[in-house]
């Protein structure tokens, strides 16, 4: 990673300006040129270091539901179950974790009703109980990955 890329990642995890020339304004704060900043962001996307350049939504305020769910999956069936779970477009990420509850995934749905329906559908597709753990309160963190 170049020094300029480092500056952009550390300096632009939020607060991108909303004005006519936002790249120009952001670039000036970072000590870069407008075209240079655009080029660096393109490069970071091409390298797969960013998933995107843009907004991080607050799902619940959009009327959607976002929940963390877990299952106890027999080790021998893990890959087959993961495939069935991941086939649902509402499953945003899925991690194997070392615990009796060993599969953890995030469900993002447009409505609370759809959330409940997807939980039932996943249980039907896998034959396993889904432990649904929607957030009750979020404690603010300044998500910031320093590189």
């Amino acid at each position: 990673m170049t020094e300029t890329e480092r500056v952009v990642i550390n300096g632009l995890q939020g607060g991108f300006p909303i004005c006519e020339r936002p790249f120009l304004e952001a670039a000036e704060k970072l000590g870069l040129g407008e075209e240079e900043l655009i080029g660096v962001i393109e490069g970071l996307l091409d390298q797969g270091l960013l998933s995107r350049f843009g907004p991080l939504y607050h799902a619940e305020r959009l009327g959607g539901a976002l929940s963390l769910a877990a299952m106890k999956v027999p080790e021998a069936e893990f890959d087959a179950i993961a495939e069935r779970v991941n086939a649902f477009p509402e499953v945003a990420h899925n991690y194997a974790r070392d615990h009796a509850l060993n599969m953890w995934f995030v469900l993002a749905t447009e409505t609370v009703e759809r959330h409940r329906a997807v939980l039932r559908e996943i249980e039907a597709a896998t034959g396993l109980n889904v432990y649904d753990m929607p957030k009750i309160t979020e404690y603010f963190v300044g998500l910031h990955f320093v590189v």
């Binding site: 990642i9 995890q13 607060g15 909303i18 797969g48 907004p55 990955f145």
Partner: peptide
């Protein structure tokens, strides 16, 4: 500009900028 500003102000957009993928950036333990 007005609409996106309002979405940020009202919290519908939590933040606007680079959304990093932590694993390729060296954050491998989670």
């Amino acid at each position: 500009v007005d609409t996106v500003s309002r979405w940020v102000r009202e919290g519908l957009i939590k933040r606007l900028g680079v959304v990093v993928r932590h694993r390729p950036l060296g954050y491998r333990a989670n």
